[in-house]
Design a binder for these strands. Structure first.
Length: 779
DNA sequence: TATTATCCAATTTTT
DNA sequence: TTGGATAATA
């Protein structure tokens, strides 16, 4: 039987799969069959007689956990193995032992938005002045602190010497926020981990018990663990060092969220006994794709050297294509997919398009729709973020946990029931004065003098409403939900809105009720509490179905762990990948490179990277230039459809000659250049929505001509001191503009520039990122 | 108090 | 362009 399980593994894989006792580090490159090894290893352990209940397997996504469970079940059916995310594991522990950190077992889990609301409330309550920081910054700072195992006290101590605005404000707010959450019997995502880590640290008995219980621990994507997760894993594997972790430092893309890559890099220090297995053979991609990935990632300095190889064929050349505009980019991709599918060489599910920011899905969606290509957009939390859904869930939260003030505030006047801002403020004051939760304060509405009689009545009605609903707390969630929709008046409210604005909010409501029904059907434990936990810890991504025959659109972050026969990466542009916010920080830039590496290595057979000359983003069209990462690819063996002169004609980051590509654009300065037809002139229709997709080859050909047309028009020198009115200039952020006037002298010399979007701005010539666009040939 | 207008800021986001 | 958060108004 063992032979069955191991026979399909290679030597290296088998070595990892049969290493049961003692620490194990599996460095697994992309496409190296990691999941296969992990699942086979577990199956092997079970066969060897290890109890399923002694195994703890931690993943980052529910999807990954499900996938593994499924595959193990295929190898050894009928084992009841617990597998899940760090967060759900911690939530489960906290339900049991939460009292150790001051949580009742019906605590609520706040999502990021709720956390922000909580933080805002806490800040208001304590009358803390945010001065120059924003609530987002502080939330971020606290989240970071929590990921790094710092409670408010530790933060205070640790940051005592820091005098930046953020840390000063955070020092004040963090303890208040902490108290606010405890009082609300609620945790944010970071708390789930932090509380458990603290609990394990301060409670040796518990630590020991759990250590005994979970004798074999497995962690997937170890490169993405943060300090809190590290501490939890460490605490659970002290007595029994049967810890196996898998990961790939080159695929660490969540450092920005507190993941610390050093966890995996220093595993061998933490566990000197560790066996290290490297899985470097790639079974996924063609040689060419792998070489592109390898060349790219080789530019990272902070890196464990790794040798990727594959026995797969050379494959087609990787494509690099430049387009005038994202609409063309999207059209060309849609057209190619359509034609290949038409030809029968592939099906839609073989294709994925990746981008750096979610907003880039828009032109792609347009193009797919135009072409009638079925597609699915994978977006993190779309469903559970919708207003209707959040509103209704807040009612459920409040019923489940009456202390949840965030939920309370969300629903108290929704639909409007005459409890406005002023009344609410009175309630808040009262609650604060007597240390009550808001719902408790409402129960004393009659005692609050400042409240008008009318308001007091409205509040009493609300309290009664919640009390009545609470009676049904043990009913199936879907029925409770139906009750909520009807009795709170929310259903009518939504219907009224739909009628007025021609929307389908009701549809979302129904969808949520359906989700509840499905939950009842699938889960053996379908209490309200379980449902709320489920929706808090499961995202839409998790039930991403690759099965339906559709093209998949998603961010590169979301793509991790997936693979597709044919992959497009769009918008490989400077300031996009790497993202502009990463430009100053070398470490952040390396992470961006890893991100592109992840994108590239998802591809099995076909890969196309593309960038545009202009990009419409946030309502503004701007000049775009190729990403510096494109220079690091093996372009000589790739198929490049880029303007004459190639990438190198566009100077990196600098503005010097990048608008060489843009000369036609510049010429259109004084005309309305919303739709620039110069490059794509086979369009017959002025309406951008209904334009005919341009075959990729044609666009490439046209680009060449356009570039030739542009010919002599060269960029002026950057240091040109001779700005004058009537002159065309290029601004880093605003694009091309016309100097209307010049005033002042010396350092104060100021230009008034009118930009393409008809905005006028003034710039000090001494510092403004302005470059003259000179048509007098200066070569 | 409730609706409407205006302004502002804007990655990625396993949970 | 979008959404969210305030400010202005009926």
């Amino acid at each position: 039987m063992q032979v069955d399980i191991l026979s399909s593994l290679t030597a290296a894989q088998r070595e990892a799969a049969t290493h049961i006792d003692g620490p194990l580090l599996m460095l697994a490159g992309p496409g190296s069959g990691k999941t296969r090894v992990v699942t086979h290893r577990i199956a092997y352990m079970l066969k060897e007689g290890i109890q399923a209940r002694n195994i703890l397997a931690l993943t980052f996504t529910n999807k990954a956990a499900e996938e593994m469970k499924l595959r193990i079940d295929r190898l050894i059916p009928g084992q009841n193995l617990w597998m899940g995310t760090f967060h759900s594991f911690c939530a489960r522990l906290l339900r049991q032992y939460g009292n150790l950190v001051g949580l009742a077992d019906n605590f609520s889990i706040l999502d990021t938005k709720d956390s922000k609301k909580a933080l805002q409330s806490a800040t208001d309550e304590a009358r803390i002045d945010l001065s120059h920081t924003s609530i987002d910054t502080v939330l971020w700072e606290i989240s970071n602190a929590k990921s790094n195992l710092r409670t408010s006290q530790e933060y205070e101590r640790e940051s005592a010497s820091k005098f930046s605005g953020v840390s000063e404000v955070t020092r004040q707010i963090y303890p208040v926020y902490e108290r606010f959450l405890l009082r609300s019997n609620a945790v944010d995502f970071d708390d789930l981990l932090l509380h458990v880590a603290v609990m394990l640290r301060d409670n040796q008995q518990l630590r020991h018990d759990l250590d005994q219980r979970y004798k074999y621990i497995m962690v997937d994507e170890y490169q993405d663990t943060n300090l809190a997760q590290y501490a939890i894993v460490r605490a659970l594997s002290l007595s029994n060092q049967n810890l196996s972790v898998t990961g790939d430092p080159d695929q660490s893309i969540y450092a920005w969220r507190g993941a610390s890559i050093s966890n995996i890099l220093e595993f061998e220090k933490d566990y000197p006994e560790a066996r290290v297995v490297r899985l470097e053979q790639n079974y996924r991609s063609t040689k060419r794709i792998l070489r592109a990935a390898d060349d790219l990632i080789a530019n990272n300095k902070q890196r464990k050297q790794k040798e990727l190889f594959t026995n797969n064929g050379e494959g087609e050349p990787v494509k690099l294509v430049c387009f005038p505009h994202p609409n063309d980019e999207a059209d060309a991709i849609a057209a190619r997919i359509a034609s290949e599918v038409e030809r029968g060489s592939r099906s839609l599910r073989d294709y994925a398009v990746f981008y750096r920011v979610n907003a880039f899905s828009r032109p792609l969606e347009h193009a797919m729709m135009k072409q009638g290509i079925p597609y699915q957009v994978v977006r993190g939390l779309e469903f559970f973020q919708r207003k209707e859904v959040k509103d209704l869930l807040s009612y459920l939260q409040l019923i489940n946990n009456p202390s949840n003030d965030v939920a309370f505030q969300r629903v108290v006047n929704l639909p409007a029931r005459g409890i406005g801002k002023t009344s609410l403020q009175h309630i808040i004051n009262h609650a604060q004065r007597y240390q009550l939760t808001m719902l408790e304060a409402c129960r004393e509405a009659g005692l609050i003098e400042s409240l008008s009689k009318r308001a007091a009545t409205a509040i009493n009605k609300f309290v009664t409403l919640i009390d009545v609903l609470t009676v049904s707390i043990h009913m199936p969630v879907s029925e409770l939900l139906v009750d909520v929709v009807e009795q709170t008046g929310y259903g009518d409210f939504v219907d009224a809105q739909d009628a007025k604005a021609d929307e389908d909010r009701r549809g979302n409501v129904d969808e949520l009720i359906n989700a509840a029904r499905e939950f009842e059907r699938e889960m053996n434990e379908s209490t309200l509490e379980a449902f709320l936990e489920h929706v808090a810890l499961v995202s839409d991504v998790d039930d991403l179905d690759i099965d339906p025959d559709r093209v998949t659109l998603m961010t590169m972050h979301a793509a991790k762990g997936l693979e597709f026969p044919s992959v497009f990466v769009v918008g490989v542009e400077h300031g996009i990948i790497p993202h502009e916010r990463s430009l100053e920080d070398a470490a952040a830039e390396e992470e961006e490179r890893r991100l592109l590496f992840v994108g590239i290595t998802r591809a099995e057979q076909q890969l196309q990277l593309s960038y545009c000359q202009r990009r419409t983003y946030r309502g503004q069209t701007r000049i775009a230039s190729p990403s510096q990462f494109l220079y690091e690819l093996p372009r000589d063996e790739m198929e490049c459809h880029i303007p004459a002169g190639g990438l190198s004609a566009v100077s990196l980051g600098g503005l010097g000659s990048q608008y060489e590509l843009e000369a036609d654009f510049i010429e259109n300065l004084n005309s309305d250049f919303d739709v620039d037809q110069t490059l794509v002139n086979n369009r017959e229709d002025d309406n951008p929505e209904s334009q005919i997709p341009v075959p990729l080859e044609d666009i490439a050909a046209q680009l060449q001509t356009a570039a030739q047309l542009v010919g002599k028009k060269r960029a002026a020198k950057r240091d040109a001191a001779s700005f004058h009115s009537g002159m065309q200039v290029l601004h880093n952020d605003y694009g091309i503009g016309l100097i209307l006037a010049i005033t002042g002298k010396g350092a104060k010399r100021t230009a008034t520039v009118k930009f393409a979007n008809h905005q006028e701005r003034k710039f000090r010539l001494a510092f403004a990122p302005l470059t003259p666009v000179n048509d007098s040939g200066d070569d």
